[in-house]
Design a protein around this nucleic acid. Structure first.
Lengths: 203, 203
DNA sequence: AAGATAATTACACCAAGTGTAATATTTACA
DNA sequence: TGTAAATATTACACTTGGTGTAATTATCTT
């Protein structure tokens, strides 16, 4: 269970000092940032505070990140690749929509951590982050679409795959929302299964 | 064909001077704002420019609007109500998804104006506006969901209606995107019909 | 050790908002 | 009609996120 997604994986054998410093600073920023966000909220946490707490200058922060949001984004890194891989793994699951469904179920099982819940709570509290999240949702839809296209070249019409990606991505969003609504008590995968079932029934 | 959605409708008979000024200033800001946006782009247009062009102080702008984005939002005002009304009008169209489909087709026919195209182009160019648009899409989904719930109390399961709203809303988004991609040559309603057909076929 | 490359910083800047308190305008009412 | 209350407008100072630039420091290569 990868609780900390930020943990930079497997430093190369020959890691120079420069590289190590970079990695550590990056880590320190995301850690300290998340800590402050959780303690005081996203909007109430200023960049100066983050920089100070991370022991760097304000300007250096922008050397590592393009914006405040990106700190949070770093904590979701890897998700897209996992999704892509999982879709490929389930290529034989049947119709495109079922392929995506199985893939999402698998990925969800891995990502239903307490950290996910915490991050989601943060997002809900901030307008900026909400907007950012929506962009993320859209991006995920795009990832699904692209992976499907590459997996089923010409087998299905592109237009349909676009709709599949949209519906699946939306179903996931609704499932996650419902899951969070209940405080994450029931299994997330349960919600996902329900969402897809309802989708099939409703369309 | 309501080309200018900003036009404030039917001023009450007994409109005081205060009310009139307010209406006119509001109008002036949205007009001038859109004009500058179209001429120079959203991000490149500063609030000071807008305020100056509208003959008000920067601070007064914030008396009328909460943010720069809201200028654009004002140009889409009324859309939600139209959608709500249209859904109610088509309540007898069959399954929930068909109800929404017919409603969207009707509303789309009214909104495929050159202004819509221009606004969409603006949105695509700005990160801020893109984020805002996604929030708007989500809001539309919510509107659809709520209207469906109120229209079909208990007739269908709530959860299903949520998925219907999501899928329909997403289908519309994809249709509009495709429409804009082609520069708005073909009829928007065509794209919408295709999207819904593909949706049914794919799920 | 020296020069190239990358990281860090200071400093000055811009633009979107917000808080506050003063001023001008409109309205309502005696 | 005059005046007090309500509302609109403004000036001013401030915060915050973010950028440009150029100087300084640390690391790497040879």
């Amino acid at each position: 269970m990868p609780e900390t997604l930020t943990k930079t994986q497997t430093p190369a054998k020959t890691e120079g000092l420069r590289e190590r410093n970079r990695r550590e600073t990056l880590q320190r920023i995301t850690d300290v940032g998340m800590e402050l966000f959780l303690a005081n909220g996203f909007d109430a946490t200023t960049l100066d505070e983050i920089a100070a707490a991370a022991g760097i200058s304000r300007r250096t922060f922008f050397y590592y990140f393009r914006s405040k949001d990106d700190i949070l984004l770093a904590h979701i890194a890897g998700y897209d690749d996992a999704l892509r891989a999982s879709i490929r793994d389930h290529a034989a699951a049947g119709a495109p929509i079922d392929v995506v469904r199985e893939a999402l179920l698998e990925v969800c099982a891995r990502f239903q951590t307490s950290r996910t819940v915490a991050i989601s709570r943060l997002i809900r509290e901030s307008d900026v982050l909400s907007s950012r999240k929506h962009r993320n949702d859209l991006h995920r839809e795009q990832v699904v679409y692209e992976t499907l296209c590459e997996l089923l070249p010409g087998k299905d019409r592109r237009d349909r795959l676009r709709l599949v990606a949209m519906a699946a991505s939306g179903a996931l969003r609704i499932a996650v929302d419902a899951w969070l609504e209940q405080g994450g008590k029931r299994q997330l995968t349960k919600y996902v299964q329900d969402a897809f079932a309802n989708l099939k029934a409703a369309i």
